[in-house]
Design a protein around this nucleic acid. Sequence first.
DNA 1: ATTCAAAGAATGTGATCACAAAAAAGCCGG
DNA 2: CCGGCTTTTTTGTGATCACATTCTTTGAAT
Lengths: 190, 190
Amino acid sequence: MHGEILPGHALTLRGIGSEFGVSMTPAREAVRRLVAEGALTLSSSGRVATPELTNDRIEELAALRALIEVELSSRALPRAHMALIDRLQAINNSVAERVAQKDAVGYIRANLDFHRALYLRAQAPAMLAMAETVWLQMGPTMRQLYGKLRRSEPPHYHRLIIAALKAGDEPGLRLAVRSDVTNGLRLLAS
Amino acid sequence: MHGEILPGHALTLRGIGSEFGVSMTPAREAVRRLVAEGALTLSSSGRVATPELTNDRIEELAALRALIEVELSSRALPRAHMALIDRLQAINNSVAERVAQKDAVGYIRANLDFHRALYLRAQAPAMLAMAETVWLQMGPTMRQLYGKLRRSEPPHYHRLIIAALKAGDEPGLRLAVRSDVTNGLRLLAS
DNA sequence: ATTCAAAGAATGTGATCACAAAAAAGCCGG
DNA sequence: CCGGCTTTTTTGTGATCACATTCTTTGAAT
């Protein structure tokens, strides 16, 4: 999910097992779960690797993020108190820090923390699980792309999200979330 | 997915294995995958059972269906030719047949076939997979609820969907799909 | 130097086993 | 007849193994 593994990287059951000090059996179960969630791909011969997403697939996943996360933010809005906004502010500072340090994995992790903190307020566990499944599928690709972007500025739309939350502005919040989710990915698919 | 197993039904690895003539290992992997997709729940002691959904969870899943399937139908619309509409018509007849026979499992299967046939035209495999994951989570509960409803009339909104497809009416299609997806579940959560 | 085939190594699969935890059954006293 | 305790059975977990398949490397011939 955090892009620690690049797209197309192959994994072996015995390798995972020895990496975590267990036998093949638990490694197999973990891999099977991640394959079911789309975080790993299973070749016809049973080999396992991180997915290499096509542009079409990236566009699809971005559209899914927009659909689900806009809804989640909309449901979180009426429950968002000052404590949450402060927390989002703090996480956003952490995001900016990672950007300044050019720490791609840390940036992705902090960015997702920002979104998760907001969506948790929606009290919609099934929707949040869906969103995280999408994140999981995009993890390796996001890392690769943010590595290419070499962005130096902190995310612009996060401040718009916070502002809309403060103002209780639902249309503005929906637009800001949709923009934040799609803009980062739209330009890399081209 | 088709509601052949009622909510809360417990399953054992050895039972599944012997049912399909395999050992525990493949049964475990299949169960783990289904747990990852939310089709089965895993108790703290490792016991596995079909999920018993709360009303909140049902509402959430219905909202997810509305979000994803409306988008899928919208993407399928420009690619929908006459052959597809004929096929949908035929499947819908099959749905009506199952309703008349009070065959709950057959009804659910035919109903999902109807939706899948439409969404396949969207050329959006990740979105379709998400929709099917939601179907999987609702399977047992849908069966229980349609058993209670004892409906005798074929689905009304399916004809609206077909009509909107013929007319190339996107707003009408989106509304029809949303209604078909939510109305069936909205009344049972109350 | 390149290509193709054969030998070798590595990998996933399904099965089986021992063990600990949990559920179920049995038993006894009230 | 019922509740609480003990015993028995059931169940999931992790490990190991044999085997077939696949991938990789090696070697030789052109």
